[in-house]
Amino acid sequence: MLGFLFRRLGDIIPTFFGVTLLVFFLIRLIPGDPILMLAGERGVDAARYAELQAQYGFDQPIIVQYFDYLMGVFQGDLGKSFVTKKPVLDEFLVLFPATVELGLTGILFAVCFGVPFGVLAAINRGKWIDHLTMSVSLTGYSMPIFWWALLLIMFFSTTLGWTPVSGRLSVMYYIEPTTGFMLIDTLLSDEKGAFISALRHMILPTIALGTIPMAVIARMTRSSMLEVLGEEYIRVARAKGLSPLRVIMVHALRNALIPVITVIGLQVGVLLAGAILTETIFSWPGIGKWIIEAMNRRDYPTIQGGILMIAFLVMGVNLIVDLLYGVVNPRIRHKR
């Protein structure tokens, strides 16, 4: 197991440096001088220009600049925002829980609906219920979620008035962030109704974000289930006279879920990309909305830092999923 861990870590190191290199060059490939861009309309005199250049290290050779950047990254220094002048990492950490919260509820929604629908489709293979779930799944998979989110708002918020249009919490409440997760913070607070308000704010973004992963999980569960249902041990279990429900839920589903776990892990990238769109639409104060705002303001250190953190996140989760898979399935661990 330890060997497997080191092998996977060894695979990830070149990618890590590659991503830092990519993000490092991001800011240097932009047409135009970053200092002049930073100075804005007013411009800057020669002395101040040299000073700023030295401050940002632009007067150094490019290799030295990259090395400095890398050292900064290792120490958690992602630079300072052009706009707020605050460290990028601090801003990221403040907003990150909101995105995690939305991502978790999104994936929970996707699993809670995707897995049962996949199982249902598999055990009714070829019947109308199979066709229906797979059609819904393919539609969900092709869904432009920014449109889907607007449709949900149009129907549930503005027409029926069931859910709020945007934000994380009604303005009636003020909750001091302790964990950063609104559902937990509101539960801990003694403001009555705050938790319900937070929950109501979560529903539509969760559905919007969870739809594509749900479709992917349903399809994966179905095909994995169909494969397992054809195995010998299922026939043995049936021959022993176990109830069909027990055969499906215990014998088949447990084994069918192994590839589904990988797919769930791979959805992290989809969720983060989806978070950019979902957060923008629902004014959800997370990192997705933050990056888009930074792009509109041309706040390059923020864009740079945000993208780097997202890449790390995706790489980290993929690594964990790989390791988990090695734990669940010894054949993977001992390969090579």
Partner: peptide, 9 residues
């Protein structure tokens, strides 16, 4: 490296 980032990002 290019696959380490989600496509939209």
């Amino acid at each position: 490296i290019m696959l380490a980032l989600p496509s939209l990002i």
